[in-house]
Amino acid sequence: MKQLIFILSFLFTTVAFGADIFDKDGIPTKPNPPRLVNDFTNIIPDGEEAQIEKYLEELALSSKTRVVVITTPTLNNYDKAQFAYEVGERWGVGEKGFDNGVVMLVKPKEVDGKGSTFIATGYGLEGIIPDAIAKRIVEQEMIPRFKQQDYVGGIAAGLQVVSDLALKEYPASAYAQKSKKKTRVKGIGGGIIFIIFIIFAILSRINRARHYSMGSGTSIWTALFLANAMRGSSGGSWSDFSSGSGGFGGFGGGSFGGGGAGGDW
């Protein structure tokens, strides 16, 4: 009976969401407003879902590690690793430049008889959650519980280990120090270069008018040099400030390199 309810609820959610949740490539579209828990198969009861969301938001604020949980009724013919990677990369889970995002993917068994799960790690987390560790989390914490249809338990147990690991890697203080450097603005750069260029050119002309025997070439090169130096120092971008509006500050724009591990049951 329990099985039947499961299947029915999956069918229902698949029909209800099937058309909406995936983009043209078959990858779930980024939720707006951003959510960390994206239970597209309704295997997590609403109460627990809110709890996990809150837990992950706190984790995002204290460790800066963004962990996204996603359950999907189908992998749309993707390999589980590829699917999790695509979600992480397209949503931009984790902060830009730090790439400290995690995607925990769960595809329940009840839809087509094969359950799959994968923990994808962003570039920045490959060091503290190496593939072998991710594999261990999946094999030892999650799949045994999934096998007993305890999806919430499995997800929570996996998240517990992930967050324990993450908290050691990015304590807020070290992070604050590290992120200080990147609050510059691009775009104004070109304008400033232009203005400096003009000022220098005019100055050089005035200069030349005064001592017209002197060459004028140098000041233009000086201006060019200064302009170049200016350009080099403007690295960051606006997106640092404007990314998302969730309680955790949005997904952030992190990047993934294919790290992580998964398993089937």
């Binding site: 690793a81 593939d131 991710a134 594999k135 993934f256 390199g257 294919g258 591990a261």
Partner: peptide, 18 residues
């Protein structure tokens, strides 16, 4: 062996992403 397996699998994924 299990860890090597996991690393190898992860490397294949990384290769395809790269």
């Amino acid at each position: 062996f299990l860890e090597l397996q996991a690393q190898l699998e992860g490397t294949e994924n990384r290769i395809s992403v790269a």
